[in-house]
C-alpha cells in the first residue's frame, strides 16, 4: 500500500514538474512562464520529499519560490515592452528546428545511457535526521566551501546592486 502511494506521488510530482517546465519554454507570455516556473519548482520540491531530502525540499520552496520566482516576475514586469509579438517568443527559423532536434536527441541519448549503465545501489541505512547531519557536515568537513559560498553571495549582492543601480564615478 505504501509502495502504491509512493508510486502515485512520484508520477504526480514528475508530471507537474515536466508539464510546468514544458510550459515555461512554450508559453509566449513571460508572466505565464514565470508562474509556471514557480509551479515547476514546487513539483521538484515534491520529488525531493520523495527522495527523503526534507531539508532541501523546504529550502527549494523558500529560495526558488520565495526569491527566484518572485525576482523573475518582477524582472518581467519591469522590462515589459508593448509590442505586437508575445513577450517570450520562440525563434521560428531553421536553426531553431535544429535546436529542437538537438534537445530531443539529448533526451534519447541520456535515457539510453541511464538505461544501460549498471548502477551500484547501496543498501546502507538512509539518514533520517538530515538537517542536523547537514549542519554538522557544513560546519566541519565543508567549512571552507561554506565560507566560499558566503563570499560568493556577498560578491553577488554587491555586484547586483552596482550593476542595477550604477555607481558614481
Amino acid at each position: 500500500m505504501n509502495e502504491l502511494i509512493y508510486t502515485v506521488a512520484f508520477y504526480i510530482f514528475a508530471a507537474i514538474t515536466v508539464a510546468a517546465a514544458f510550459g515555461v519554454v512554450t508559453k509566449s507570455n513571460l508572466v505565464h512562464s514565470a508562474l509556471l516556473l514557480a509551479l515547476c519548482f514546487i513539483g521538484v520540491s515534491g520529488l525531493y520529499v520523495l527522495l527523503q531530502a526534507d531539508f532541501l525540499a523546504a529550502v527549494q520552496i523558500l529560495i526558488y519560490n520565495g526569491a527566484i520566482a518572485i525576482v523573475f516576475v518582477l524582472g518581467t514586469m519591469l522590462t515589459r515592452r508593448s509590442s505586437r509579438h508575445g513577450t517570450n517568443d520562440t525563434e521560428v527559423n531553421i536553426p531553431s528546428r535544429v535546436v529542437t532536434l538537438v534537445s530531443g536527441l539529448f533526451v534519447v541519448v541520456t535515457l539510453g545511457v541511464i538505461a544501460t549503465t549498471p548502477w551500484h545501489y547501496s543498501s546502507g541505512v538512509i539518514v533520517e535526521d538530515t538537517p542536523s547531519l547537514l549542519a554538522q557536515l557544513i560546519l566541519t568537513d565543508y567549512m571552507v566551501v561554506m565560507e566560499a559560498a558566503a563570499v560568493l553571495l556577498l560578491a553577488a549582492m554587491i555586484g547586483a546592486i552596482v550593476l542595477a543601480k550604477g555607481v558614481e564615478e
Binding site: 514538474t17 515536466v18 517546465a21 514544458f22 515555461v24 519554454v25 515547476c40 521538484v44 517570450n88 517568443d89 520562440t90 525563434e91 531553431s96 535546436v99 529542437t100 538537438v102 534537445s103 530531443g104 539529448f106 533526451v107 541520456t110 535515457l111 541511464i114
Partner: peptide
C-alpha cells in the same frame, strides 16, 4: 534528463 533537455531547448531558442 527531460527537464534538462527542456531547459536546453529554452536556452537555445528563446528570444
Amino acid at each position: 534528463a527531460i527537464v534538462f533537455a527542456i531547459g536546453l531547448y529554452g536556452v537555445l531558442s528563446k528570444r
